[in-house]
Simulated assay, not measured.
Amino acid sequence: MLIKLDTDEPELYTEMESVFVEYNNNLVPFFFEKTSLHKSTLLRAKIEDIDSEDDAEDMIGCELYLPLTLLPVLDDDQFYYHEIIGFKVMDATHGDIGEITSINDSTAQALFEIKKDDKEILIPMNDEFIEEIDKPNKTIHLITPEGLIDLYLG
Rank of each mutant, 00 (worst) to 15 (best):
M1N: 10
L2Q: 09
I3M: 03
K4T: 04
K4H: 04
L5H: 03
L5D: 01
L5Q: 03
D6E: 08
D6A: 07
D8K: 05
E9H: 14
E9Q: 14
E9A: 15
P10M: 03
E11L: 04
E11M: 02
L12T: 05
L12M: 07
Y13P: 07
Y13E: 02
T14M: 09
T14E: 10
E15G: 14
E17D: 11
S18M: 14
V19C: 04
F20Y: 13
V21L: 04
N25P: 03
N25M: 11
N26M: 09
L27P: 00
V28Y: 01
F30G: 00
E33H: 04
T35D: 10
S36C: 09
L37K: 02
H38N: 15
K39A: 10
T41F: 02
T41K: 12
T41Q: 09
L42T: 06
A45T: 08
E48I: 13
E48Q: 11
E48Y: 09
I50K: 03
I50W: 07
I50G: 05
S52N: 01
E53M: 14
E53F: 12
D54V: 15
D55W: 12
A56F: 08
A56L: 13
E57D: 07
D58L: 15
I60R: 00
G61P: 06
G61Q: 03
G61M: 03
C62R: 10
C62D: 01
C62H: 10
E63G: 06
Y65T: 05
Y65A: 05
L66Y: 00
P67W: 01
L71P: 00
P72M: 02
P72C: 04
V73D: 00
D75N: 15
D77Q: 09
D77H: 13
D77V: 01
Y80C: 04
H82P: 04
H82G: 13
E83N: 09
E83F: 10
I84P: 09
I84M: 08
I84Q: 11
G86S: 08
V89R: 05
V89W: 04
V89E: 02
M90Q: 08
T93P: 00
G95E: 02
G95W: 12
D96R: 15
I97S: 05
I103T: 06
N104H: 11
D105P: 01
T107R: 14
Q109E: 07
A110M: 03
A110D: 08
L111C: 02
E113Q: 10
I114T: 08
K115D: 00
K116Q: 02
D117K: 15
D117N: 15
D118K: 15
K119L: 01
E120D: 07
E120W: 11
E120P: 01
I121M: 02
L122T: 03
I123M: 04
P124H: 07
M125C: 05
M125S: 03
N126M: 07
D127K: 10
E128M: 12
E128Y: 10
F129H: 08
I130P: 15
E131H: 03
E131N: 05
E132K: 08
E132H: 05
D134G: 04
D134L: 05
K135F: 13
N137Q: 12
N137I: 12
T139G: 05
T139H: 06
T139Q: 12
T139K: 15
I140Y: 11
H141V: 12
L142H: 07
L142T: 13
P145G: 11
E146N: 14
D150K: 13
L151D: 15
L151M: 15
